[in-house]
Amino acid sequence: MATEGQSEGLAFHPLDQFQVKPLFGDGPIEWYTVTNATLWMGIAILAIILIFVVGTAGRSIIPSRIQSIAEVIYSFIHKMVEDIAGHDGVKYFPYIFTLFCFIGFSNFLGLLPKSFTTTSHIAVTAVLAVMVFLTVTILGFVKNGPAFLKLFWVTSAPLALRPVLAVIELISYFVRPVSHSIRLAGNVMAGHAVIKVFAAFAPLVLMSGIGYVVTPLSILAITAMYGLEVLVALIQAYVFTILTCVYLKDALHPGH
């Protein structure tokens, strides 16, 4: 699609990889259409089943490799929930674990060449973040009643400052889902787009002499960015999960 139009120049299409396309046929995308997003979400579910259900089927005391991966992830998230949200937050561990698994597996599967990264879409991350926001807000009011509003009334500040702080706290509370979702989607999208931009420089060797310098550099840059992206994929899943835990703590113990 790029090559026919401008075969003499480099083709920069860093965002084409994020297009949602129907898997079968070429029709319009209805809400039930099976698209590449569906495919890669399905692959994420399969990977989760493979590691957490098939891998642990042995229930062995001395774990196999896959079972120890599952156990490491389990213990990691369990400890995170317990440390940050407290003992009464452990009830919500499956919910948080679901979020972590979906985001983590989507991020890592998105790093495969030719794949589609579901978490690079604002629509997906916004739903995740709004779910967290609604859960936390409803939970806060259910558990604490009106006392949940004390979250916005900073008692440690001087009395004169408190109304101002309350407004700021209120705004920051409602900005939470926005930053929560855009952080994840933006990080993933930025990394993938940058890799794509570097990749667009790679065919320069076919066009001009300067390509002998640029092409190896671009391949090196792709490799380095890929390494960084592997890190980012893990860290963003971690950050999303840990912020969910922090918000959950606010809902369960709004006093501080």
């Binding site: 949602v20 995308i29 209805e30 809400w31 039930y32 259409t33 698209t35 997003a37 569906t38 979400m41 399905g42 994420a44 579910i45 989760i48 089943i49 957490f52 259900v53 642990t56 599952a70 499956p94 919910y95 674990f97 679901t98 698994c101 979906f102 579901t118 879409h121 629509a123 997906v124 739903v127 995740l128 779910m131």
Partner: peptide, 24 residues
């Protein structure tokens, strides 16, 4: 494409939640 993605995301999340919380 939002409706499509949100629908399939919710399906995926519910599936993952059920698999994880019931079995894994």
């Amino acid at each position: 494409t939002f409706g499509n993605q949100i629908f399939w995301l919710l399906v995926a999340l519910v599936l993952i939640y059920l698999i994880l919380s019931k079995i894994a």
